[in-house]
Design a protein around this nucleic acid. Structure first.
Length: 526
DNA sequence: AAGCTCAGCAACCGCGGACTA
DNA sequence: TTAGTCCGCGGTTGCTGAGCT
């Protein structure tokens, strides 16, 4: 169609003499060999020209398109148009639940590697995925929800620890490569000294408390929005498909511990905002040689409620709840969480356990909870303080003896003891039923954000009570409690908008305490 | 009905890696 | 080895339509 470079201003497209000019890039210019290149939306005629060209010459050599066809489009634009709209086998329409699930997993695994993610989603383009994700981010930010299902964050911890054994994490590879090496993000040096703590509780009766603390309180937690903490597997991602994994399944074990673990710190972190499990830039920093996991993570982490959104909005995976000074020091903001949570405990601590107060935001909470819980049930501490292995925990006998809800917060079955892979494996449909099916299969109660919680005096919390410990996210199959929060959850549902179901009916499902989490690797992901 | 807001999407832009001469 | 070119990727922008006031 012999496109004149001067006859393309119809259809609302940019005029050929648009001020948008060549930026010097061979692709991006508005002129090419004297031909003024067009910008803006493509017309059907242009599409036809491009399709015809590709049929004849195949993909690639995009700069030649203009030369061969006269199409007043730069090669870059042609490639984009072809890749995103014209190439065959493109899948149009909304993402399916399965696709959404995959995207979430892949993003947790890869970060913003849209093209690579697209490779896992036949018929989908990187642009589509990127747009989807960005939309999702916005939506979840507005809702004050985590970018990832809480499980993704929490359960990554063991994976992180596993990575520590890999030299690659220090070898200067790109963070994403490192992360991909085992299927998950994880700036995990912080866990270096914690490897042995995974099942050797820093606090008697609190297996994994330290790592859990890191998971939450360190920049590596990249957490979650607190309101979703503790709802792992229960709290429905408002804009995500319900899955076996997320629904947790009534009898699905791994969720429970996370639920309580999260719950322990949930409310204390509710104002912290979004955090993300993976941040390339920060990961690199964290991987730097001068990074001190002991100090940087545990002391300099800040939990700025005033910053999290800006961070999240700006960066790919904002994730970090700390701010970086010009000197590369992570400075706590004035509203550091330390101001909210006073170190509740005194007395000697395990040498390998960061002391409350100094590190320890999460630890503080744990300690406090521990102290309170301990007073109620000493056996809990004894039972869980045993140096149990992953498999041993499966026995659950000890855990079962621990009736205090506190135990759940620090249960070795907690997310910190759950692998990312297990999470993903649970995400991965194994039953064949749709994600939506799961919504109906489980009576669930959504986690909701209760702003008042964070304002509560810590002393008001009765840690001996599960509902106190868990706050709004305490699992409730049915009953008055679930109704209590109905209005809030409904409002959340309304906020989320994209769900057909009320938040009240989504997100939460009770989980067995003592079931053992399956452990598998993220490599399960296609 | 008009105006406003916002989510979703398409496209642009700049950067950087790969390749080649 | 270096410079030039091609191409892909990721971030960002701007348009459009739907929903709300």
């Amino acid at each position: 169609m012999g496109h004149s470079s001067t006859a393309e201003s119809e259809d609302g497209v940019l005029s050929v003499d648009s001020p948008l000019s060549n930026d010097g890039d061979n692709f991006g210019g508005s002129s090419n060999g004297g031909v003024v290149l067009k910008k803006g939306p493509w017309t059907a005629a242009e599409d036809a020209i491009l399709v015809e060209y590709v049929k004849k010459h195949g993909e690639g050599n995009w700069n030649a398109v203009q030369k061969h066809t006269g199409l007043a489009r730069c090669g870059k634009s042609c490639r984009l148009r072809w890749a995103n709209h014209l190439r065959p086998n493109l899948k149009k329409g909304a993402f399916t639940s399965e696709e959404e699930r995959i995207i979430i997993e892949l993003h947790a695994k890869m970060g913003n590697k849209w093209a690579r993610m697209a490779a896992h989603l036949p018929g989908r383009t990187d642009n589509e995925i990127k747009n989807y994700w960005n939309t999702r981010i916005k939506r979840r930010q507005r809702a004050g929800l985590s970018l990832y299902p809480p499980d993704l964050c929490l359960q990554s911890l063991p994976e992180n620890q596993q990575q520590l054994s890999s030299p690659r994490i220090y070898d200067g590879d790109k963070a994403c490569d490192i992360l991909q090496s085992n299927g998950y993000w994880a700036p995990n040096i912080m866990f270096d000294s914690l490897n042995s703590l995974r099942y050797a509780p820093a606090v008697p009766g609190i297996p994994g408390s330290v790592s859990m603390g890191n998971g939450f309180a360190s920049p590596h937690s990249y957490g979650f929005v607190p309101q979703t903490i503790g709802v792992s597997g229960q709290a429905r991602e408002p804009d995500e498909p319900m899955s076996d994994y997320e629904s947790g399944g009534i009898n699905e074990a791994p969720m429970f511990s996370r639920t309580r673990t999260d719950s322990c710190v949930n409310k204390s972190f509710q104002s912290f905002g979004l955090c993300y499990p993976y941040d390339t830039d920060h990961t690199k920093k964290l991987l730097s040689s001068d990074f001190n996991p002991d100090t940087d993570f545990m002391s300099d982490v800040t939990y700025s409620a005033s910053e999290h959104f800006s961070n999240a909005q700006k960066s790919e995976l904002p994730s970090l709840q700390y701010q970086e000074t010009g000197l590369g020091v992570w400075d706590p903001p004035p509203e550091s969480f330390d101001s909210l949570v006073q170190s509740p405990l005194s007395g000697p601590l395990p040498s390998h356990c960061p002391s409350p107060g100094s590190s320890g935001l999460l630890e503080d909470l744990i300690y406090e909870a521990m102290a309170l819980g301990k007073s109620e049930n000493q056996s809990s501490a004894r039972a869980t303080s045993s140096n149990v292995s992953h498999g041993e925990v499966a026995d659950g006998s000890a855990l079962r003896t621990c009736s205090t809800e506190f135990k759940g917060c620090i249960d070795s079955n907690s997310p910190s003891g759950n692998s990312m892979g297990s999470l993903f494996s649970r995400y991965t449909p194994t039953t064949g039923r749709s994600l939506e099916d799961d919504v109906t299969m489980h009576h669930v109660k959504s986690e909701v954000f209760d702003p008042s919680w964070i304002l509560d005096d810590e002393s008001k919390v009765d840690y001996s009570r599960p509902d106190a410990m868990l706050g709004s996210c305490w699992v409730e199959q049915s009953g008055p409690a679930s109704k209590q929060r109905g209005s809030t959850t409904d409002s959340i549902a309304a906020l989320l908008g994209d769900t057909s179901a009320s938040a009240s009916t989504r997100g939460f499902t009770s989980c067995s305490w003592n079931n053992m989490p399956p452990v598998c690797q993220i490599s399960d992901i296609p």
